[in-house]
Nucleic acid binder design. Structure first.
Lengths: 199, 199
DNA sequence: CGAGTCGTTGAACGGAATCAATCGTCGTGG
DNA sequence: CCACGACGATTGATTCCGTTCAACGACTCG
């Protein structure tokens, strides 16, 4: 993600922060002063509906950056919480913006990254337009799999994937089992292999 | 959107193209050479699932740009079709990239735009995580309404909004009627006023 | 004036959410 | 070091609500 770009910039080293489990790094509405990258563990980005239900927006794993979009926003637009103990690097927004002004190539690269993210988000949105849980899961797997090996190594909990797909986790398990039973996929633990590219 | 930025750049004027109804401007996989802005009518961005069903990604109205994400992509990732007769301005990718290199401020502004789009897409994704059709529609209206007047002037067909919200259009009409019946909103034609900010 | 599409409402069906219960595992603290 | 608690993974039964099919009026555009 952005993290390699961040480190290529000759700015002051990021502040390293340890976050305890369930501790929140920032909350929606907090003034946005930093962009983050996960060093250990993972960070969940969520929003809360007015009825108190949490909506999972994204899970940033080790090596990934998050809150990049906050670079041009005065405040954070979601909550960042660690559900396990995590370590993150905090880069100062000012520093980054300054670096962008110094070097147009870097600004351009950043723009390219955001573009890719836009496309990724569009793809996610596209997935949501698939009614059938089974088809939705299957398309997700197709998307995540490397095109040649047709294998997916799910990095996070199935439960979180369910949330990202907008499905109840029970439904996810069920349909995953059904797909396996029907010989469409095979899996051991968190490694899933796609056997048929059509459903 | 991007259109004002595009026009501020001192590059060769865009090529104006008239698109007939149902004609497609580009297809998924076509080499991406242009970024577009709608002058008249509107353009639908769609993808097709392998079962042939169309998934609506976005509707770009007059004054809006689209396919900005293609700036850093070799090919288009979706189809652009006009469902009514439309006129679009086509800006050459090369020109834009060149302008970005010339003027870092412009590149930065572009990056900012993409960031905002990321946040907007995240918001849409968040909407999709709301199960209840009624709550989903209500949150959508809250989001679209200007914060002070609490009024929404829907620019496109309700049918398209339904698609954007991931709902069958029948459900949308029904729940909209229910919301009105319950005194949560009032509407005349395409103008909707929110009467209660909670549901 | 006719075709096509949007807007609208009704009825029935189906599938995903929800509630519920169990097992395994991992981390933690006494 | 082990017991306990928390949470992920899994499967079953039931409920509910959104989709789908169907039908009709209104409106627009050719």
């Amino acid at each position: 993600m952005l993290i390699d770009l961040l480190d290529r910039l000759a700015l002051r080293p990021p502040e390293i922060r340890d976050v305890q489990a369930h501790e929140s790094l920032f909350r929606r509405g907090d003034p946005a002063r930093h962009i983050f990258a996960v060093e250990q563990g993972h960070i969940k980005l969520t929003r809360y509906l007015n009825d108190g239900r949490a909506v999972l927006l994204h899970v940033a794993g080790a090596g990934q950056s998050f809150a990049e979009a906050a670079l041009f926003s005065e405040v954070y637009h979601c909550h960042a919480v660690a559900d396990v103990k995590a370590r993150v690097a905090a880069y100062r927004k000012d520093d980054l913006l300054e670096a962008f002004r110094r070097d147009p190539a870097i600004a351009l690269e950043y723009a390219a990254r955001m573009s890719r993210q836009v496309q990724h988000l569009r793809t996610q949105l596209e997935l949501r337009n698939i009614q059938s849980a089974r088809e939705r899961i299957f398309q997700y797997l197709l998307q995540e799999a490397s095109p040649d090996s047709l294998q997916v190594d799910v990095p996070i909990a199935f439960k979180d994937i369910s949330a990202a797909l907008g499905l109840a986790h029970e439904t996810f398990y069920r349909e995953l089992a059904a797909l396996e039973r029907d010989g469409v996929i095979s899996r051991e633990d968190k490694k899933i292999r796609i056997l048929k590219t059509g459903i």
